[in-house]
Design a protein around this nucleic acid. Sequence first.
DNA 1: TAGATTGTTAATCGATTAACAATC
DNA 2: TAGATTGTTAATCGATTAACAATC
Lengths: 214, 214
Amino acid sequence: MEQREISRAVIGRLPRYYRYLGELLEAGVERISSSDLSKKMRVTASQIRQDLNNFGGFGQQGYGYNVKYLYTEIGKILGMNREHPIIIIGAGNLGQALANYASFEKSGFILKGLFDVNPRLEGVSIRGIPIRMMDDLEEFLQKNDIEIAILTLPKSKAIEVAELVIENGIKAIWNFAHTDLNLPEDIIVENVHLSDSLMKLSYNISRYNEEHKN
Amino acid sequence: MEQREISRAVIGRLPRYYRYLGELLEAGVERISSSDLSKKMRVTASQIRQDLNNFGGFGQQGYGYNVKYLYTEIGKILGMNREHPIIIIGAGNLGQALANYASFEKSGFILKGLFDVNPRLEGVSIRGIPIRMMDDLEEFLQKNDIEIAILTLPKSKAIEVAELVIENGIKAIWNFAHTDLNLPEDIIVENVHLSDSLMKLSYNISRYNEEHKN
DNA sequence: TAGATTGTTAATCGATTAACAATC
DNA sequence: TAGATTGTTAATCGATTAACAATC
């Protein structure tokens, strides 16, 4: 399979294209040129065309891009045309928040299970899914076909739990724990380090204050 | 003030350095070379030295970097030596999760207020902070010195609320709403688009499956 | 057909890595 | 002093932008 490697930078922009195209679609817009889209998204038209051409020629000279078609195609590239069975490990505030986030379900991320160590949560259900105890996790993974494990637990537990789930066949982890996981190469990890994000914000504030001091 | 512009890429890596140095500090490590740190962090030693030298010479030839000193200095750069009064707007699951996240408080992000439109939440308190109604937001902002507004509300409301808070002096927004805010240049926005992150994960799974199909 | 706009090549810009002299 | 390791310059690599021929 010859397929040239797509750069991280490009992939990182795809969801944003998808979002804007979704909004255009909702607004009933039928076609858009790279130039018009570039104004909306505040990127260069050149970048849009380059990015899209990594995946094929979705446009048409003299016309632009058909919004619905492009939306669907980017959706396919992002795997939005498939279902993704997920479990959430760590049913604290954040885990529960994600479990309740219905719009993931709409995108095909189907919540199959919720796990926690806290015995007080045993039997509590969120959107019809009961919170199970961690002891049941291995058996659950063996009996169910789960694609993504979402880790919303303290960093002290995250690494061992990550190892446990990959021993039981999980290939992809969405990691909210405040640590890097250092897993084997073939495991797909996407980190959401909220405090890193907050620190970037704080850095920018500090710099802004520096600049406007005088 | 001559200060050369620091690239986004560098800034994006600072919190990760800070995290690793914090761990080293906890582990009682006194000094570390760029080469040893590069192995731990899986980046090049060259990059570490380049990155740090954007801010000054923190190391010493023949010795490396003093962990505690470097940790403190990066902390200062990131504004971790100051307090940041924050409010959370949108006290749904995610807003409450963030409000309960005590480790932000330890980093100096002090929760001063919580707001929501839902009258059922009126008077409910989280960590001693009562949830207020949105009608009180403007007055609250005028009477209190708030640095950061955290937006954890639906995208339909996010844009207008963002405009409201900046009219009342807020300079920095941590945006969890599923939309871009398009605010004036001088407003500092850090976006956490969770579904974008999830789509990147999904993309990588799809590509992995493609590659291992045969 | 003429105008518009893509797809794509070439030029530029920026970020990363390599190398090494400076120095602790 | 010798060895280690930084700070920094130069070389490489990759990503973005500009330009334009192809084509709808």
